[in-house]
Structures are given as structure tokens and as C-alpha cells.
């Protein structure tokens, strides 16, 4: 009976977050232990790399950084122009939110729930609802926070919906994690009259103010028209490497704080601050 009451309390009201937080202190060492094998192998890899290899890799990374910086400048211009054209103050400051790095240290033991554990928690100012990105695209949002760790719900979870838009024409849709094709997204409620074709790039639309605007989400892979069905079946391949990346980025600030930031700051000021 206590269990049932507890489940109900947790699911509906979130009364028991404090209990979870308390026990979270005890679970941290277990996460650390279960992550130890991969940490040790990584450490071995690092220490046995030859110096020449390191130099080579350093060169490559510097080149990449240069390219990335150039792209960033380009992006900055585009965002500036875009916001001027659309007279939308939001877009520019929303892309360039502050980010902090984190590492994935575990995945959900349940196959059908797509969640990962990251090594940052309340003590590192992580809050529920923070957006999580990797180098290629949107990954998910923080679902549960514990003292030094937190669970991230990935965009491919079948209970997660991401508000997206087509970057070509601004058609909006909701991307839900596919339940029968793991690792894929499905667009919901796309009518036959909407202009979405295979190969379209989808970006986050910023609606619901959980995710930053204009961050890449995925690419439309297949579109199936079923006569007799009201909506098209659209599958999307996410850009983020959801099952192979280890380093992720947390977008700083809770969603509501970010909205305040967007409202109060002018575009020019925020871009100057960031760059």
C-alpha cells in the first residue's frame, strides 16, 4: 500500500523529490563504480598514446576549432540578419545560450525507456527541464535531478515530444520518439497539405520554451502516405549521436529564466556579451 501511495505521489505531485534527493547521495558511488570499467579503459587509451599521435591529433583538433570558429562567425551573421529581418528579438539570444559540459555515465537499464545518466547534478546547478545538446544536435532534457547526477530523457523516448519546424519554410510539427523503431523520431499530426519532403532538416522551434530555438534536431527520412489515414507517417533520423556520444552540453538556466532573458535583453547587447 505504501508503495502504491508512493508511486502515485511521485508520478502526480512530485512530493517525494526530497526522498529521491536524499537517497541520491547514496547512489552516487554506485554509479561511479559501474562506470569504472569504461573510465579505466579510457585512461589506458590516453596514457598509452604515443607523443607523435598526440601531436597529430592536436593539429587536427586545432584545424577543427578554426573551422568551427569560422562557422560560428557565419552563424552569428546569419542569426543577426535573420532576427533583423523577422524583427524577432528572441532568435539570436536563444541560440547562443550559455552551455556547460557534462559526461554520460550510464544508460537506463530498461530498453524501452530512452534515458541516460549524466555526471552533473543539483550541486552543479542542474535543474529539471534543462535542454541537453551534443555536437551534432538536440539530445533531450533533464528529467530527474540528484545531488551529483541527473537523468536525461532523450528525444527518442516514446513519451517525449519535441516542438520542431522545417528550416526551409517554417512548417511546424511535433516530433515524438518512435515506439516501434528505436532511435528514430516520428512527426505527429502532419497533414497531406503541409510542405514537408524527404531530406528536410528539422530544427527546434523554441515553442514551449524548453529547448533553444533553431537547434538542429534531425532529418526527414521517409514519408508514407496512407490513403484513408488523416495524417502522414513521417520518420525522422536525429542528428545527435544518441547512443555513441559521451560528452554532452547542458544549456544553462532554467527554461523560464531563459524566457526572461529573451524578453529583457536586446539582440545587439546579448550578441556582444556572448562574443
Amino acid at each position: 500500500m505504501i508503495s502504491i501511495a508512493l508511486m502515485f505521489a511521485d508520478n502526480r505531485f512530485g512530493y517525494v523529490d526530497n526522498i529521491r534527493y536524499g537517497i541520491g547521495f547514496l547512489t552516487a558511488p554506485i554509479y561511479w563504480l559501474s562506470d569504472a570499467p569504461s573510465v579505466i579503459t579510457n585512461a589506458f587509451d590516453d596514457s598509452f598514446l604515443a607523443r607523435s599521435e598526440l601531436v597529430e591529433r592536436n593539429k587536427q583538433l586545432e584545424l577543427k576549432l578554426l573551422v568551427a570558429q569560422n562557422e560560428l562567425r557565419l552563424l552569428e551573421n546569419v542569426a543577426f540578419e535573420n532576427s533583423r529581418l523577422l524583427e524577432l528579438d528572441q532568435s539570436a539570444s536563444a541560440i547562443f545560450g550559455e552551455v556547460s559540459p557534462a559526461e554520460i555515465i550510464n544508460i537506463s537499464p530498461d530498453l524501452s525507456s530512452k534515458r541516460v545518466l549524466i555526471n552533473k547534478g543539483v550541486l552543479d546547478d542542474v535543474v529539471r527541464g534543462q535542454a541537453v545538446l551534443d555536437a551534432n544536435g538536440l539530445m533531450g532534457q533533464v528529467d530527474q535531478v540528484m545531488p551529483t547526477t541527473s537523468w536525461v530523457l532523450l528525444i527518442t523516448d516514446s513519451h517525449h515530444q519535441t516542438p520542431v519546424e522545417v528550416n526551409r519554410n517554417g512548417e511546424r510539427a511535433l516530433a515524438r520518439g518512435s515506439s516501434n523503431r528505436p532511435g528514430q523520431l516520428e512527426l505527429e499530426f502532419v497533414t497531406a497539405s503541409q510542405d514537408i519532403v524527404v531530406g528536410d532538416k528539422l530544427v527546434s522551434s523554441g515553442m514551449g520554451s524548453v529547448f533553444p530555438k533553431n537547434y538542429p534536431v534531425g532529418e526527414v527520412e521517409t514519408i508514407v502516405r496512407n490513403p484513408g489515414q488523416n495524417f502522414l507517417a513521417v520518420t525522422v533520423r536525429p542528428f545527435a549521436k544518441l547512443d555513441s556520444t559521451r560528452l554532452v552540453l547542458l544549456v544553462k538556466g532554467s527554461p523560464s529564466e531563459r524566457v526572461d532573458l529573451i524578453k529583457t535583453e536586446s539582440v545587439g547587447a546579448s550578441i556582444e556579451r556572448e562574443f
Binding site: 505504501i2 508503495s3 502504491i4 501511495a5 508512493l6 508511486m7 505521489a9 511521485d10 508520478n11 517525494v16 526522498i19 529521491r20 537517497i23 541520491g24 547514496l26 547512489t27 554506485i30 554509479y31 537506463s108 537499464p109 530498461d110 534515458r115 545518466l117 528529467d143 530527474q144 540528484m146 537523468w151
Partner: peptide, 13 residues
Amino acid sequence: LFLDVLEGSVLGI
């Protein structure tokens, strides 16, 4: 309860 927190599932399952 401990296992629930560990797996990040709803408390009590």
C-alpha cells in the same frame, strides 16, 4: 526504494 532511485524510475516500483 534504493533500486528505484538508482534506476531513475518512479519511486515504489
